[in-house]
Simulated scan of single mutants.
Amino acid sequence: MMKEIAVLLFVALFALTRAQDPQEPWCNCAAFVSYEHSEIKVYQGPVINLNHCDHTDQCKVACVAELESLTNNGDLFYEVDGQTVGQYICTSLADNMFFVMNNKYVYGYFEVCGGAWQYTGIKAQQKLCCTNGIHKHCTE
């Protein structure tokens, strides 16, 4: 009986703290490389504040604008601060112990308030190829 009361008390306390600390609506933008049974996140954008978690279109528009701006419409060879977009991705992959990436397109996605990832319609113009953290042209 005491265990049941303790569990109910814990659940009630958890619900009360969640009700007192409502999460602000947010939008998350990222880029992924797709494999047959998995996805690898290769870019994480900054969180974008939303007015409401139902504002899916607002999130998508903001993510499309961010991804297009950062990559010059999906160009992996577009230079940002002296490095290509692809080099930034390859460096990030290598920093996370992922040293080889061959012939993979990068796709833009967004999520709203922790929901399912949704495709933005953004796809890299070129395939991504990295060897030991170095971005290179793909030779299929």
Rank of each mutant, 00 (worst) to 15 (best):
Y105I: 04
A124P: 00
G74V: 06
Y119R: 06
C53K: 04
V64N: 08
C27Q: 04
Q23I: 12
C113D: 15
A62E: 13
Y35N: 06
E111M: 14
Q126F: 03
G114D: 11
C113V: 01
C90N: 00
L76Q: 01
I122Q: 05
F14R: 04
Y35F: 14
T120K: 08
Q126W: 00
T17D: 08
L76T: 05
E24R: 05
E4Y: 06
G82W: 01
V7Q: 08
T56A: 03
V80M: 09
V80S: 12
Y78E: 03
V106K: 02
F32N: 11
P22T: 06
K104Y: 11
Q87S: 03
V61S: 08
Q20R: 13
R18V: 14
Q83P: 01
D75I: 06
Q118E: 15
G82Q: 09
A15I: 08
L13M: 14
N72V: 12
G114Q: 07
L13W: 10
C130I: 03
V100A: 11
H52R: 06
N51E: 13
K104D: 11
W26L: 07
N51G: 15
C29T: 07
T84N: 05
T17G: 03
F10K: 10
C113H: 09
F77R: 07
M2F: 07
G133F: 01
E24H: 02
I122N: 07
L93H: 07
S38L: 14
N73L: 10
N103E: 15
A65K: 11
P25E: 07
A30T: 01
F32T: 09
K41N: 09
M97K: 08
T71G: 07
E4C: 06
A12I: 08
G74D: 05
L50M: 03
D57T: 14
H52P: 01
D21R: 11
V106R: 03
L93M: 13
T56G: 00
C27Y: 00
W26K: 02
P46K: 12
K127M: 13
F98L: 08
H135E: 11
Y88T: 02
Q23G: 02
L13A: 15
F14M: 11
